Amino acid sequence: MHRQLITFEVENQVFGIDIMAIREIRAWTPTTRLPHVPSYVAGVVNLRGTVLPVVDLAARLGWRATEPTSRHVIIVTEVESQFRGLIVDSVSDIVTIPVDALQPPPATAGDSVVPFLEGLAAIEDRMVMVIDLPKLTDNAAIAAAA
Protein backbone atom coordinates (compact mmCIF):
# COMPACT_ATOMS: atom_id res chain seq x y z
CA MET A 1 0.00 0.00 0.00
CA HIS A 2 1.27 3.46 -0.92
CA ARG A 3 0.39 7.08 -0.14
CA GLN A 4 0.86 10.14 -2.28
CA LEU A 5 1.97 13.37 -0.67
CA ILE A 6 2.34 16.92 -1.90
CA THR A 7 5.62 18.23 -0.55
CA PHE A 8 6.27 21.88 0.22
CA GLU A 9 8.63 24.11 2.16
CA VAL A 10 8.17 26.31 5.19
CA GLU A 11 11.21 27.98 6.76
CA ASN A 12 13.55 25.76 4.68
CA GLN A 13 11.98 22.60 6.10
CA VAL A 14 10.21 20.03 3.91
CA PHE A 15 6.66 19.02 4.81
CA GLY A 16 4.08 16.78 3.19
CA ILE A 17 0.29 16.56 3.16
CA ASP A 18 -1.76 13.65 1.89
CA ILE A 19 -2.79 14.50 -1.66
CA MET A 20 -6.39 13.42 -1.00
CA ALA A 21 -6.84 16.34 1.45
CA ILE A 22 -5.70 18.98 -1.05
CA ARG A 23 -8.34 20.74 -3.14
CA GLU A 24 -6.13 23.25 -4.94
CA ILE A 25 -2.93 25.25 -4.85
CA ARG A 26 -3.40 28.99 -5.32
CA ALA A 27 -1.03 31.82 -6.01
CA TRP A 28 -0.62 34.20 -3.10
CA THR A 29 -3.63 36.44 -2.51
CA PRO A 30 -3.58 39.08 0.24
CA THR A 31 -5.81 38.15 3.16
CA THR A 32 -8.32 40.24 5.05
CA ARG A 33 -7.36 40.27 8.73
CA LEU A 34 -10.03 39.53 11.30
CA PRO A 35 -10.20 40.78 14.89
CA HIS A 36 -10.00 38.42 17.86
CA VAL A 37 -8.44 35.43 16.07
CA PRO A 38 -5.15 33.73 17.01
CA SER A 39 -2.00 35.28 15.56
CA TYR A 40 -1.47 32.28 13.25
CA VAL A 41 -4.76 32.96 11.43
CA ALA A 42 -3.55 35.27 8.66
CA GLY A 43 -7.11 36.20 7.71
CA VAL A 44 -9.59 35.17 5.05
CA VAL A 45 -9.75 35.20 1.25
CA ASN A 46 -12.59 34.84 -1.21
CA LEU A 47 -12.58 31.37 -2.77
CA ARG A 48 -15.16 31.58 -5.55
CA GLY A 49 -17.74 33.17 -3.26
CA THR A 50 -16.78 31.23 -0.12
CA VAL A 51 -14.91 32.73 2.82
CA LEU A 52 -11.71 30.70 3.22
CA PRO A 53 -9.80 31.01 6.51
CA VAL A 54 -6.05 31.11 5.86
CA VAL A 55 -3.53 29.82 8.41
CA ASP A 56 0.09 30.95 8.45
CA LEU A 57 1.65 27.50 8.76
CA ALA A 58 4.97 28.80 10.08
CA ALA A 59 3.22 30.73 12.86
CA ARG A 60 0.93 27.77 13.63
CA LEU A 61 4.01 25.59 14.10
CA GLY A 62 5.42 28.08 16.59
CA TRP A 63 7.92 29.74 14.27
CA ARG A 64 8.08 33.39 13.23
CA ALA A 65 5.15 34.68 11.23
CA THR A 66 5.44 34.65 7.45
CA GLU A 67 5.78 37.95 5.63
CA PRO A 68 4.05 36.81 2.42
CA THR A 69 5.26 37.84 -1.00
CA SER A 70 4.09 36.97 -4.50
CA ARG A 71 6.32 33.85 -4.28
CA HIS A 72 4.25 32.31 -1.48
CA VAL A 73 1.31 30.03 -2.18
CA ILE A 74 -1.87 29.00 -0.42
CA ILE A 75 -2.61 25.29 -0.26
CA VAL A 76 -6.38 24.79 0.04
CA THR A 77 -7.15 21.72 2.14
CA GLU A 78 -10.35 19.95 3.13
CA VAL A 79 -10.69 18.18 6.45
CA GLU A 80 -14.09 16.84 7.54
CA SER A 81 -15.89 19.08 5.01
CA GLN A 82 -14.07 22.19 6.29
CA PHE A 83 -11.86 24.13 3.89
CA ARG A 84 -8.70 25.83 5.15
CA GLY A 85 -5.87 27.61 3.39
CA LEU A 86 -2.26 27.17 4.46
CA ILE A 87 0.40 29.75 3.61
CA VAL A 88 3.62 27.97 2.57
CA ASP A 89 6.87 29.21 1.06
CA SER A 90 6.73 26.97 -2.03
CA VAL A 91 5.29 23.70 -3.32
CA SER A 92 7.85 21.11 -4.37
CA ASP A 93 6.36 17.97 -5.91
CA ILE A 94 4.19 14.88 -5.55
CA VAL A 95 5.88 11.87 -3.97
CA THR A 96 4.71 8.31 -3.38
CA ILE A 97 5.76 6.51 -0.23
CA PRO A 98 4.98 3.06 1.14
CA VAL A 99 2.59 3.34 4.09
CA ASP A 100 5.09 1.55 6.33
CA ALA A 101 7.81 4.10 5.45
CA LEU A 102 6.18 6.65 7.75
CA GLN A 103 8.07 6.73 11.05
CA PRO A 104 6.57 8.17 14.25
CA PRO A 105 7.85 11.64 15.14
CA PRO A 106 10.44 11.78 17.90
CA ALA A 107 9.20 12.64 21.38
CA THR A 108 11.18 15.80 22.01
CA ALA A 109 10.29 18.09 24.87
CA GLY A 110 9.31 21.62 23.94
CA ASP A 111 9.13 21.06 20.18
CA SER A 112 6.14 23.01 18.85
CA VAL A 113 6.04 21.06 15.55
CA VAL A 114 5.80 17.44 16.77
CA PRO A 115 2.16 17.61 18.01
CA PHE A 116 1.08 18.44 14.44
CA LEU A 117 2.99 15.61 12.74
CA GLU A 118 1.63 12.31 11.57
CA GLY A 119 5.17 11.08 11.06
CA LEU A 120 8.45 11.43 9.18
CA ALA A 121 9.43 9.90 5.87
CA ALA A 122 12.89 9.69 4.32
CA ILE A 123 12.55 10.56 0.63
CA GLU A 124 15.78 10.49 -1.34
CA ASP A 125 18.22 12.63 0.63
CA ARG A 126 15.69 14.60 2.67
CA MET A 127 13.42 14.08 5.64
CA VAL A 128 9.78 14.99 5.02
CA MET A 129 7.58 15.90 7.99
CA VAL A 130 4.05 14.68 7.23
CA ILE A 131 1.41 17.04 8.65
CA ASP A 132 -1.56 15.64 10.57
CA LEU A 133 -4.18 18.01 9.14
CA PRO A 134 -6.99 17.23 11.61
CA LYS A 135 -4.69 18.14 14.53
CA LEU A 136 -3.35 21.21 12.75
CA THR A 137 -6.76 22.62 11.88
CA ASP A 138 -8.70 21.48 14.97
CA ASN A 139 -9.39 24.87 16.47
CA ALA A 140 -12.64 26.69 17.11
CA ALA A 141 -10.94 30.03 16.35
CA ILE A 142 -10.14 28.91 12.81
CA ALA A 143 -13.71 27.71 12.34
CA ALA A 144 -15.02 31.02 13.63
CA ALA A 145 -13.03 32.83 10.92
CA ALA A 146 -15.08 31.00 8.30
Rank of each mutant, 00 (worst) to 15 (best):
S92P: 01
V73M: 08
V91R: 06
V88G: 00
P98A: 14
Q103K: 14
Q82E: 12
V91G: 03
E78F: 00
T69F: 01
L86M: 12
I75F: 03
I94Y: 11
T77R: 00
V99M: 10
V79Y: 13
D93P: 01
V99D: 14
I97Y: 06
T77M: 06
A101T: 11
F83T: 12
R71P: 04
A101P: 07
S90L: 10
S90R: 15
T96N: 05
S70I: 12
I94D: 08
V88M: 03
D89L: 02
F83C: 06
S81T: 15
I97N: 00
E80H: 10
G85M: 04
D93F: 01
T69C: 03
P106E: 09
T96D: 05
I74Y: 02
P98L: 10
H72C: 13
D93E: 15
E78Q: 13
I94T: 09
R84K: 08
R84V: 12
P106M: 05
T77I: 13
T96W: 04
A107R: 12
A107C: 01
P98R: 15
D100E: 11
V76D: 05
P105L: 01
I74T: 09
P104Q: 05
S70K: 14
S92V: 11
E80S: 12
H72M: 09
T96I: 11
R71A: 15
V79K: 13
D100M: 04
Q82L: 13
V91H: 03
T96Y: 08
H72D: 12
H72E: 14
D89K: 00
A101M: 07
E78D: 10
P105V: 00
V95S: 04
I94F: 13
V95Q: 05
S70H: 12
R71Q: 15
E78T: 06
